[in-house]
Design a protein around this nucleic acid. Structure first.
Lengths: 204, 204
DNA sequence: CGACACATGTAACACGTTACATGATTTG
DNA sequence: CAAATCATGTAACGTGTTACATGTGTCG
């Protein structure tokens, strides 16, 4: 939904053509996520199909400019007004990998954790290096900060897992045996949906 | 790639049928990410198509068991041996939204940040509540920790953005043209700790 | 001239996801 | 018996992503 909403938001400010959207997106997000031009056009086609934008051809030549429609404008307003949903977190490959690793015999969990931690640190280094080359651009700087926060959280978690495993059974991988005939009392379904809870977090 | 690799990994331990894979996945990952059964079957079809698994039918009835192939086993080994790539981070909707918001006139960035922060805190609460109900399951507990780390990093970043904006131009948001107002003096990253490991980097 | 950025698209694929149809088996 | 769970699948869609074809304009 990222590209879709970004394109729509940019068109909510001013009409643009495909190539300009690519350039504008990369400029506004600091060039951290290069956007394939082809994807802009496919996205525009789908937005057009859904009635959120409209292709416009000022001159008779090949130049095509896209404009947002009222429906598209509403969508943008809703996007600004709402929050990005984090209730149902996306399956994360690393987390799943570690979760499976600690319950799989014959897998060197420690090695996985250490290697991944090295990768996290390399990302952090690259981010710090990039930051020195940016400096002035506010949006770009904040994007880099975000990636940095994430990489740090990842590294911390990897350390946390390693420490936890050392504290618990390093030589005895417990974890309920995998019965070929599943007879366990499985209870599943994400965590609470927290409908009516208000934030006590004491923000600011 | 998460579901694909997870299914493959489970089959690398023992042959299973579709429904069993769903159950086993949710058991091993703590049920945080419920897995639609239909998705297991589509994934199995694609893995079969790619020669990584093979459908097997012990009895003549409708029961179908999937086994991993040598090629599938190799894939799993490579997965364990490699690292999850974080070099080219996935476009994150929240980050893009904030990046666009601070360069879009007429958008209340502060409101976006505060609302999103509330959402992050609610997620944290739900995670804490869920953790009290788990306790024993190691894998599940670590998965919850991961989600918790992420939510905290997100909240911290939101605070960081708000503080940065307050420090910089709260009444003078740099707008459309690529002229990001040269004033940023305070570079308070706070995360310059990196140990060992040299990296080539080469992003972009 | 030739290289390169600008510009517009199409085709095809990967992965995730849901909705639906269908039947067997278990169990209250 | 009826309901729930187990079990197998298909169809269809959404989003992201890349590879390719094609052409214009500029500039060294």
């Amino acid at each position: 939904m990222s590209v879709k909403h970004a394109v729509l938001t940019l068109l909510d400010e001013q009409p643009l053509h495909g190539y300009g959207l690519k350039a504008e997106f990369e400029r506004r997000t600091g060039g951290t996520w290069p956007l394939n031009v082809g994807q802009v056009y496919t996205t525009l086609q789908r937005l057009d199909r859904d009635g959120l934008v409209r292709a416009h051809n000022p001159a008779g030549d090949g130049s095509v400019v896209y404009e947002i429609t009222p429906a598209g404008h509403s969508t943008v307003q809703e996007w600004w007004g709402g929050v990005v949903d984090r209730q149902a977190p996306t399956r994360d490959e690393l987390t799943i990998k570690v979760a499976l690793a600690i319950t799989t015999p014959g897998v060197d969990v420690g090695q996985i954790l250490r290697r991944q931690r090295t990768a996290s640190m390399q990302v952090l280094q690259a981010l710090n290096r990039a930051r020195t080359q940016v400096g002035e651009d506010l949006a770009w700087s904040l994007v880099l900060d975000r990636l940095s926060f994430d990489a740090q959280a990842e590294a911390q978690w990897l350390d946390h897992v390693e420490a936890t495993l050392r504290r618990q059974g390093p030589g005895a991988p417990p974890a309920a045996p995998a019965t070929p005939r599943p007879d366990s009392a499985a209870r599943t379904g994400g965590f609470d949906d927290l409908s009516a809870t208000t934030a006590p977090g004491g923000r600011r």
